[in-house]
Design a protein around this nucleic acid. Structure first.
Lengths: 227, 227
DNA sequence: GTTTACATACATTCGTGTATGTTTGTAAAA
DNA sequence: TTTTACAAACATACACGAATGTATGTAAAC
């Protein structure tokens, strides 16, 4: 085929990404050949190899399309955490969950990321980016919780790091749960309730910092069943 | 090679499962050929096709090896939930997490299940089983929370279903987080703290049942920032 | 002698990467 | 302004390896 104009080429690229989303979701990243993606986009493999280096590169571009809004929300949370730390964290968590519940593209990408791909060597760059994003998110949330402690919104002695890990686990766990069975529950409605449950728990029974990292065997628990 | 005795054959089968655990974890389920598994086990593909129907069958057997203890803990939880519902739920969640933190085989299988395989058509039976297990777990936890409400351990009007979904998300989210970066935090120590945070949150700010499923647009939040 | 528990060999399919072909926008040269 | 040359944006073709399933071989246990 012939040469297109710039905008036509960008349209082709976008159609390739859309097609990859659909096919990856249905057949899995590793199980789909680039020929299938090309077919679904109405082009040939040549188009893919023109726009992308290989399948991993295509996948990476696919993920980055939905990363930006989340990162923007993270930034905003860090700003707002100065005045209202707990509120900022709450808004971030709820916003992330409701964003997933509302946006079809986000749903497709999270479906692929959670269930339809395996993180081996060839996806190492994607994986590294995911872990970096997670680390960043945890650091920001931890910082916000620290501010909440300083402001007296959370009890002194609260382990902000553990608190952040718990919130992250709750949110991502909900995301995965919902992606596994979409439509089985109303994520948009459940999200604020459960985030509030967790934050209320942080206030009334927060994770305490371990008083001193003794040399004794770690891993076992000692807390006498605080029920 | 020659024929072995029954116990020898069972040992070969076990070594195949062990080898598959290692290779799947390193290279991903879809990206590993059965020849690699056979090599790692010191046999040929013939042995695999003797003991298992195909790769999916091998993977399924691999997962089932670690499912039993968890299901047993679930049963025990249901029994204990009559007398001490919240305590039983708490013990189940903490036990599951610490079981992951302690057992190498469980770690390997969860690693593969979370990160190194893609759930496509060929893994449909495995997937169906996972979803069934999840459903069972959610139902039992919901029932336990209902008992807790009946006993006054949780406020009346608490939505037990949502409460169970949140706990499940927290626990599985922690599992995945820890599997993603093992050694980055002490799961055995963090687990009871965060489970307690969540349960304390259920007590002080529980998810309320939606009073009446009005016809109004669902999904948006209305709660006036309960900070 | 028969079946078990594998090993070996084979045919076939599939996917990838690359090399090459082809057409047309587009900008500079004339 | 027309022509020329180049490069963008793909399509097509090919070579290669790799994985699967099956078919067959085989030696020891029972």
């Amino acid at each position: 085929m012939a040469r297109k104009r710039h905008e036509d080429a960008l349209a082709t690229r976008a159609r390739l990404l859309d097609a990859a989303e659909r096919v990856f979701r249905r057949r899995g990243v590793g199980h789909t050949s680039l020929a299938e993606v090309a077919d679904a986009a109405g082009v040939t493999r040549g188009a893919i190899y023109w726009h992308f280096k290989d399948k991993a590169d295509l996948f990476q571009a696919l993920v980055r399309r939905v990363e930006m809004p989340i990162n923007a929300a993270l930034e905003e949370m860090s700003r707002a955490s100065a005045a209202d730390p707990l509120g900022a964290v709450r808004r971030l968590a709820v916003h992330a969950l409701q964003g997933l519940a509302a946006d079809r593209r986000t749903q497709a990408v999270f479906d692929v990321v959670f269930l339809r791909c395996e993180y081996t060597e060839e996806l190492a760059p994607v994986r590294a980016r995911q872990l970096g994003d997670r680390k960043d998110c945890l650091r920001r949330c931890e910082a916000a919780f620290e501010r909440a402690i300083a402001k007296g919104e959370l009890p002194a002695g609260t382990d902000a790091r553990v608190a952040a890990q718990g919130l992250y686990a709750l949110v991502t766990g909900l995301m995965r749960s919902w992606v596994e069975t979409p439509g089985r529950f109303d994520l948009g409605a459940v999200a604020p309730k459960l985030v509030d449950v967790y934050i209320a728990g942080l206030k009334s029974d927060p994770p305490r910092r371990t008083p001193a990292p003794r040399k004794s065997a770690a891993g076992r628990v000692r807390r006498p069943q605080a029920a």
